[in-house]
Computed example of a mutant assay.
Amino acid sequence: MSHSTAFPVALSGSRDRVQMWAAEADVENEALAQLRRVAQLPWVHGVRVMPDVHVGKGATIGSVIAMNQAVSPSAVGVDIGCGVAAVRTSIRADQLVGLEMLRASVEAAIPVGFNAHEELPDLRRFGLEAGVDGLFGKFESLDEKVHRLRNKAVGQLGTLGGGNHFLELCLDQEDRVWITLHSGSRNIGKTLADRHISIAKSLGHNQGLVDRELAVFLEGTPQMDAYKHDLWWAQEYAAKSRALMLALFKESVVRHFEGLDMGFDAPINVHHNYVNEETIDGQTLLVTRKGAIRAGAGDLALIPGSMGTGSYIVRGRGNPGSYFSASHGAGRKMSRTAAKKRYSAQDLAAQTMGIECRKDAGVVDEIPAAYKDIHQVIEAQKDLVDVVGHLRTILCVKG
């Protein structure tokens, strides 16, 4: 990966609409083709590409797309509101004991994979009841095709899911313990996204597009209004879900270290698959970040690596050139299928040595070697974020 002073570079064949914090030679051809197709959409003001860029379904992961009076639901992705949360604790490395027991306790408190809460935890314990009551009070106003999913959505609030989603304990350079996690809007977000992507593809103005997967909604239409309504709801659901998981994780930690006087800093909780209305180049535009975070001046965020390679806490530099954005993580360099063919559970155990985590065949597709080097990804965006600290993983829960 080239040195960051060379960035951004214009993507060839994109009429300078696409500016990249990655070298073309380091990006797979299909991702470059996806970015060029996005640049051809008449509503696109510009595209900014992060150093963790890789092929995505519909639109490229690691892309920031600013559109005028339009939004493409595929450019958000199906995990609406997916993002990360982190909180620093007062515990230090030398106080850590019984990590295997702690992992079991966290897995018991926070359902993973396809599992859900049998009943929602008592939200009054965490001061979250008003927000969640308000969230589900709006459920009937969502797309009518998802009303039957209400009970499932309630049960999946505050649950992890699978894939690259995680719950981790990490240590910073001062040996302070951090809680970090990565999750999104679960099945309800995906169902809403799939519904709206299908509706967008059927609209007349999207016929004959360079790529039907990039079908858009136009401002001022009932379809856009309906999408925005469901989108804002799913983004709120994802953020509340992370807040509940953080609370449950903290509770498990407090219980595990009974007798320690424990404190927690203010949490970080940010989306990296979402839409926001922002002022870009003096215009009010709809900005979609798919695998990218907002990195406005002073914004704190978490940029995770892969399983076992730790994460970075960063502070945004507010660079207008990137549309005030930065990468969301390390980014895959190998598909899940390719990783499973190439690596074994033994390889996973070797690459996660010293970390309390699953080391079985079920999570081999999440092996660190399937991802780009997080340190190089951070280096490539030195003009977008300042590093506050590097976190090294000591415990990781996967779905």
Rank of each mutant, 00 (worst) to 15 (best):
L160I: 01
N151R: 09
D133R: 11
F114R: 10
I110G: 05
R103E: 06
V132T: 07
F166R: 10
V132R: 02
F126I: 14
D172N: 12
A153I: 03
L160F: 00
N164E: 07
H117E: 06
V146T: 04
D122A: 08
K152G: 13
A109V: 07
F136K: 11
G163F: 06
G155T: 07
L160V: 00
L123N: 03
E107Y: 11
H165F: 00
E168D: 08
D122L: 15
G127A: 07
N115C: 04
V112A: 05
F136E: 05
P111C: 01
L157C: 07
A153W: 05
H147M: 01
L149I: 00
G162E: 03
C170E: 12
S141D: 14
V154Q: 01
R148V: 03
L123D: 15
L157Y: 03
A108N: 13
L128R: 04
H147P: 13
R124V: 07
I110D: 02
K145T: 04
H165W: 00
L167D: 02
R125F: 10
A116F: 02
A153K: 06
R125K: 12
G155W: 04
P111Q: 08
K138A: 08
R150K: 02
F139I: 06
P121I: 07
E107K: 04
F139K: 01
V146Y: 02
A104P: 15
E129D: 09
S105H: 12
I110A: 01
A108T: 12
L99N: 15
N115V: 08
G137M: 05
L142E: 03
G158Q: 10
K138P: 13
G127H: 08
L120F: 08
E140F: 12
S141V: 14
L123W: 09
L167C: 04
L102I: 02
D122G: 14
N164H: 06
N164Y: 05
M101T: 14
C170Q: 15
G131W: 05
N164F: 09
R103Y: 14
V146Q: 02
D133C: 13
F126A: 14
D143L: 06
A104M: 08
F126D: 09
D133W: 14
A108L: 11
D133Q: 08
A130F: 01
H117P: 00
A104Q: 13
L128G: 04
E168H: 13
L157T: 06
V112S: 05
L160H: 04
A153Y: 01
L160E: 02
S141Y: 09
V146C: 04
G161V: 03
G137I: 01
L123K: 01
H117M: 08
S105D: 09
E144N: 07
C170R: 10
R103Q: 10
D172M: 15
A108I: 00
A108F: 09
